[in-house]
């Protein structure tokens, strides 16, 4: 649906050109929710603005729905933009228009007839759950409601692609989740391709199928959300993953346990997919004569499945511990030994 081929973008400045994006290759499939994560200054905003050509690439090719966006004339570009909706961090609504008026704006721009416009606006208001607020002005709405208007407005002309520019960054966590649920729902219902840039891993985890990590103008890692979460390769990706696994707090708890239980064996179980749903600890208790103390655990649900970790302190005789670990591994759960008091590996 969307292809970026060696896209480069640089801005002129006093000390020569500053490169914002240095050779981006990306392929986003129809119906996918694709997250692009990066810190501020990584070039995320530039990247998403290239897709509807609010920014002009310095070089490279960009294809959206079979159209070579980078070579369209101004008039063709305006037409092509009607197939690419966009929502923004600060909503960018017209404050002089009501909810209805704002949603009607792109339809007016596209030259839709008045009666049809009215009908379409009603459908959209229902789709984003703003019934009863049709005649409110943006200043009378909460942040979440404003973003709902933004979404309705972006969907008005039945686009094939929706670009989300930090769409939840100005919202509180609860509202963020409700907006993400709405986007996911729209993706499923309309088969819409969604590209979102964000600095919050939570957003990627919750709704994206695929993720690309952007660092100083380059994509440093890319793949299925579940794979990237379980197996982050680059340091920056690991940092982002830590945002949601609360790894630092877990490490502290484990460190404390190491001091108070120097004789215990500490292992970390790594679950993914279906193994995350099985009652492994229960089975372990019944089979093995070991004492188990749960130190820390978490589970994250992504669009490609669940993954989680569980850190255990195990006490008992060495044979029992060994066979417990064997049993866990047989269940398709990864095991990482953190403190090896029983000398399992020697």
């Amino acid at each position: 649906m969307i292809q970026l081929k060696s896209i480069k973008k640089s801005y002129p400045s006093k000390n020569g050109a500053v490169e914002a994006l240095s050779g981006i290759d990306l392929s986003i499939r129809q119906g996918e929710i694709f997250g692009i994560i990066g810190y501020s200054g990584a070039g995320k905003s530039t990247l998403i603005r290239l897709i509807n050509r609010l920014e002009q690439p310095t070089s490279g090719r960009l294809i959206v729905d079979g159209k070579e966006i980078s070579s369209l004339s101004k008039k063709e570009l305006r037409e092509a933009r009607k197939d690419i909706g966009m929502i923004f961090q600060h909503f960018n609504l017209l404050w002089s228009r009501t909810v209805k008026g704002n949603i009607s704006f792109p339809l007016e721009v596209a030259g839709v007839k008045k009666a049809e416009r009215k009908k379409r606006v009603q459908e959209l208001i229902k789709l984003v759950g703003l019934e009863g607020r049709e005649n409110a002005y943006p200043s009378q709405l909460s942040g979440g409601q404003k973003q709902r208007v933004g979404i309705a407005r972006a969907l008005a002309n039945n686009p094939k692609v929706l670009l989300c520019d930090e769409a939840t960054s100005a919202l509180d966590p609860k509202t963020t989740n409700s907006i993400l649920d709405l986007l996911l729902n729209i993706n499923k219902k309309l088969g819409l391709t969604i590209v979102m840039i964000t600095h919050e891993m939570h957003v990627v985890k919750k709704i994206c199928h695929k993720v690309a990590v952007l660092d100083t103008g380059k994509i440093v890692e890319e793949g299925n959300v579940l794979d990237v979460f379980q197996n982050p390769k680059m340091a920056i990706t690991k940092e982002f993953v830590k945002q949601i696994t609360h790894q630092e707090e877990a490490d502290e708890a484990v460190d404390l346990m190491k001091q108070t239980h120097p004789s215990g064996t500490i292992i970390k179980l790594l679950f993914k997919g279906d193994s995350a749903k099985r009652p492994i600890i229960n089975e372990l208790f019944q089979r093995q004569r070991v004492e188990i103390n749960i130190l820390e655990g978490n589970i994250s649900q992504t669009q490609n499945g669940a993954f989680g970790t569980l850190t255990l302190l195990i006490d008992g005789n060495i044979r029992e511990i060994k066979s417990a670990i064997d049993y866990i591994e047989q269940q398709g759960v990864g095991v990482e030994v953190i403190q090896d008091a029983a000398q399992l590996i020697s």
Partner: peptide, 21 residues
């Protein structure tokens, strides 16, 4: 707000539409 003008451009509005609307 420049963002509002950008949003209108992103919706495919022409320059005259941006002035009037």
């Amino acid at each position: 707000d420049k963002g509002v003008i950008e949003a209108a451009q992103a919706m495919g509005a022409s320059k005259w539409q941006i002035i009037w609307k």
